[in-house]
C-alpha cells in the first residue's frame, strides 16, 4: 500500500531531522561510511593489490620504503603497498566485525526475548548459561576455541571460525539487556490487550514486543560492532587471523613480528592502528547518539527546540 510507503518516508525524514542536530552522531556516521566505502571501492582506490610486490627501477623489491619514497603509505618488509593492504584489509576486518556483531546480536536478542517473555524454567536456564559464559575470561576462551577448531581440520575457512567464535560468545550482555527490557514491555497494557484479543505468543512477540525493542537492538548492534572489530583485531594480532587474507590485526601482527618498530617503519604499524581506532570510534559515537535519541530519558525535553523552549504546536494547523 502506498500509504505505508508514505508513512515510512515520513518516519525516516523525522528521524533524519532529529539525527542531523547531533554533530557527534554525524561524525560517527562519517567515520563508518568512509571505512565502508574504502572497503567496497578498494580496487578503484589503488592500482596495486595486497599481494603485488613493489619494485624499484632495478627490479629489486622495495622493502620498508617510507611514504617519501613510495606514496602514499610506503611498503612493508616484503615490498607490499601499505595503502593497498590497508583498504583490502578493511574488507576482512569489517566483514568479520559486522558478521560477528550481527550474529551475536541476533543470538543475544532471540535468547533475551525468549527468556524474558516466557520466564520460569526457560528464563532460569538461559540466564544461568549467560552467567557461566560471562564469568569465563573471553580472550583465553576464544584463543583456545579458535586454536582447537583449527586443529580439527574441518575444512572451514579460518575467517568463518573467527566469525562464529566471536559471534557465538559475545551475546551475553545483549541477552541480559534485551531480557530486562522484554520483562517490562511484557507487563504493559497493550500486551495484555493483545492477549485478551486472543493473540498467540508468536504474534505478540512479533507485533508488540519486537517493535518496542527495535531501537535498543539497533543501537546495541552498532555498539557491539566496535567490540567485534576490536576483538577480531586482537585475535588476528595474536596470530589467529588468516595470513592469506590479512586484516588490520594481521597487519599489526606482521609489523610486530617482522620488526617494523626497530626499523622505525612507523608507516607499517600506525595506519592499521588508526584504521581500527577510526572504525570503532565511529561505531561508539554513532551508537551513543542513537542510544540517546531512542531512549527518551537521556534526551532533552521534547518541548525544547533548537532555540530553547518552544510552544506546543499542532502539526497540521500550526497553531
Amino acid at each position: 500500500m502506498s500509504d505505508h510507503w508514505k508513512l515510512f518516508l515520513r518516519n525516516l525524514s523525522e528521524f533524519w531531522k532529529a539525527f542531523r542536530r547531533n554533530k557527534l552522531g554525524l561524525v560517527g556516521g562519517f567515520l563508518i561510511l568512509t571505512a565502508l566505502l574504502a572497503a567496497i571501492f578498494a580496487p578503484a582506490l589503488t592500482p596495486h593489490s595486497a599481494v603485488d610486490i613493489m619494485r624499484d627501477s632495478n627490479g629489486r623489491a622495495l622493502t620498508f620504503a617510507s611514504p617519501a619514497t613510495h606514496s602514499p603509505l610506503g611498503t612493508d618488509d616484503a615490498g607490499h603497498d601499505i595503502w593497498a593492504l590497508l583498504i583490502y584489509g578493511a574488507r576482512i576486518s569489517l566483514m568479520v566485525g559486522f558478521l560477528a556483531g550481527f550474529i551475536s546480536m541476533f543470538v543475544g536478542s532471540s535468547l533475551g526475548i525468549i527468556a524474558g517473555y516466557f520466564g520460569g524454567a526457560v528464563d532460569t536456564l538461559v540466564m544461568r548459561v549467560t552467567d557461566i559464559l560471562m564469568v569465563i575470561p573471553d580472550l583465553p576462551l576464544m584463543l583456545v576455541l579458535v586454536a582447537t577448531i583449527r586443529q580439527m581440520d574441518l575444512k572451514v575457512s579460518p575467517l568463518s571460525v573467527l566469525i562464529l567464535v566471536i559471534g557465538l560468545l559475545y551475546w551475553t550482555s545483549a541477552a541480559r539487556l534485551i531480557r530486562s527490557q522484554t520483562l517490562t514491555i511484557k507487563e504493559r497494557q497493550f500486551v495484555a490487550r493483545a492477549r485478551a484479543i486472543g493473540a498467540g505468543h508468536w504474534h505478540i512477540i512479533r507485533k508488540h514486543i519486537l517493535p518496542q525493542l527495535m531501537p535498543l537492538i539497533v543501537t546495541n548492534t552498532v555498539l557491539i560492532l566496535s567490540t567485534a572489530i576490536l576483538i577480531e583485531s586482537g585475535l588476528a594480532f595474536l596470530g589467529l587471523g588468516d595470513p592469506t587474507q590479512p586484516s588490520w590485526g594481521t597487519m599489526l601482527n606482521f609489523a610486530f613480528s617482522r620488526s617494523a618498530i626497530s626499523n622505525g617503519a612507523w608507516w607499517f604499524y600506525l595506519p592499521p592502528g588508526i584504521a581500527i581506532l577510526w572504525v570503532s570510534l565511529g561505531c561508539i559515537l554513532l551508537g551513543n547518539v542513537l542510544e540517546e535519541m531512542m531512549n527518551p530519558r537521556l534526551t532533552a525535553h521534547y518541548l525544547e527546540g533548537d532555540k530553547g523552549m518552544i510552544a506546543i504546536t499542532d502539526k497540521e494547523t500550526g497553531l
Binding site: Q189, F190, R193, H208, M214
Partner: peptide, 16 residues
C-alpha cells in the same frame, strides 16, 4: 472483548 482502563497504555505506541 475487553476495554482497558488506560487508553494511553493499551495501544501499542509503534503501531498505526
Amino acid at each position: 472483548q475487553m476495554i482497558f482502563q488506560d487508553p494511553y497504555e493499551s495501544l501499542n505506541p509503534r503501531a498505526t
